[in-house]
């Protein structure tokens, strides 16, 4: 059985009765003031804005050089895709594929699918392939590893700076921002997107 009219606070386990929210309203726990849910419109707006920002930053992060090394007049710089391509040569192919998947494909899918779903949701419509998109959003979330990449870049900069001059390029900064944005997006409970749908449809889809 489900009680769609009830809501439980995640933090203090108290149960509250749902009430309809107008635009720009937030439902809070009466005991611990934690945010229980937002007006779907506000929630969608926030998420879409973040997703849009993430999309822009993703482009910057992939287009501009991540790291630039120079030694005795010889220098080299590469952006994310170039480094992945360099890694994929020869025996590093598998590592390269994994890196490509976790650093490029998954974040891209995350942003694209979420953006797709949100744009339609904001217009109070159900996006084509909504269920498919939502399922895949949930599945690929653990595989987004931009923060790991960022750590790797940091380690490389620290380790290499003793031997040659290393400069973090704009791509590294963009990646850092992208990591923050993706974390923020992932923190949002996309399940609320299901709610505007009728309970029946939702149940059907869940089965």
């Amino acid at each position: 059985m489900t009680y769609p009219e009830l809501v439980i606070c995640e933090y203090c386990d108290s149960v509250w009765c749902r009430s309809e929210l107008g635009d720009h309203e937030i439902a809070r726990c009466g005991r611990c003031r934690a945010v229980l849910y937002r007006a779907s419109r506000a929630d969608i707006d926030q998420l879409l804005a973040l997703t849009l920002a993430a999309a822009i930053v993703f482009v910057i992060a992939n287009a501009s050089p991540v790291i630039r090394i120079a030694v005795s007049g010889m220098h080299n710089e590469a952006n994310l895709l170039q480094s992945i391509a360099a890694l994929s040569h020869g025996s590093g192919l598998i590592v390269g594929l994994v890196a490509a998947a976790t650093l490029f494909v998954v974040p891209l899918l995350q942003i694209v699918l979420l953006g797709w779903v949100l744009v339609f949701a904001r217009a109070r419509r159900r996006a084509p392939g909504f269920a498919f998109a939502m399922r895949w959003l949930h599945r690929i979330r653990p595989w987004s590893m931009t923060e790991v990449f960022l750590l790797g870049v940091l380690v490389a900069i620290v380790k290499l700076s003793g031997m040659l001059s290393v400069i973090a390029g704009p791509g590294a900064w963009a990646t850092a921002i992208l990591t923050v944005l993706i974390t923020l997006i992932a923190q949002h409970d996309v399940r609320t997107l299901w709610e505007p749908l009728s309970a029946r449809v939702a149940v059907e889809l869940r089965e």
Partner: peptide, 25 residues
Amino acid sequence: LPPVSVVRRGRWSAGLIWLVPVVAA
């Protein structure tokens, strides 16, 4: 059960989030 307490946010604070993509752009 007691209903949730509903807090209204200022219109501007809701729109504020759009600054993020704008800055990124």
